[in-house]
Amino acid sequence: MKTSDYQQGRNIIAGVSLVIASFVILRTLFQFSDYLIPGMSYLYNLYSGNIAPNVITVILFDFRGYDTLGETFILITAVITTTIVFGWGSLKGYKKKETPEMTEKSTVIQRLMAFPLAIFLVAFGVTIVLGGHISPGGGFPGGAVIATGYFLTVVIYGLKKTPLRFTHRYLVNLSTIGALIFLLTGVLGLVATTYYYGTGYYLYNTGVDPYDIIHVGAFGWDNLLDYPDPTHPGILPYLNIGVGLNVLAGLSLIAMFLMEARKDE
């Protein structure tokens, strides 16, 4: 069988399955709104108000905090994979190539505006990260905003002349610190609950202590890692900071490696 025939046959099969799939998906989604129920969301809305005002942050970092750990790690995996794609740490070894600059020069206005805008973005990102438990936002959007600021300066001024200059090692360190903050906060919850209760719970919110497991005055504080705020979000701000560091470092690393790529031949 020739390749073209084979290709054509495969295209026909793909086309037919595409049509069937689209019909099923559209049909299902059309009648879906008749079946919707509140489900768990009602419970989360009911319980979350006791921890922090922003219900979504509470779900993200408390009830489903472990999912967020997975989410952090898929970003790390993607960053490492991107570095492997460009040869860093691969089995053949990494040859540092000379960094190519984009050939098109940026205009004066771009160069004048980019740096203040980037500084604004970084500051804005920091506020988003720190206020994640009260207002909409948190580690992910905040980290992404900071990474966008970095990316902007890199695109406008080039990798070498950018005022916000991060080295590769520095970003790896930042993402390591961010991920370790998350992982070790979880381990702290595990250890503390095992010590006081016998059963360990990973990522237990030691600051809020919703089940009165870690008794008051355990290590001289009221509760471990409590955030000094009347709203008592417990460990959530710390997790937000960890995620924010990790996201900003990860996305910046991806941008950096994409910018460094060049033709081999």
Partner: peptide, 28 residues
């Protein structure tokens, strides 16, 4: 079984949440 974040099995308020069983796990 391991309950992440220590969230035990809780009542599900079936009449409002429309969940068909009386108790659910809220965490992972």
């Amino acid at each position: 079984v391991h309950l992440f974040s220590g969230h035990l099995r809780t009542g599900s308020f079936p009449e409002v949440s429309k969940i068909l069983i009386p108790e659910v796990y809220m965490g992972i």
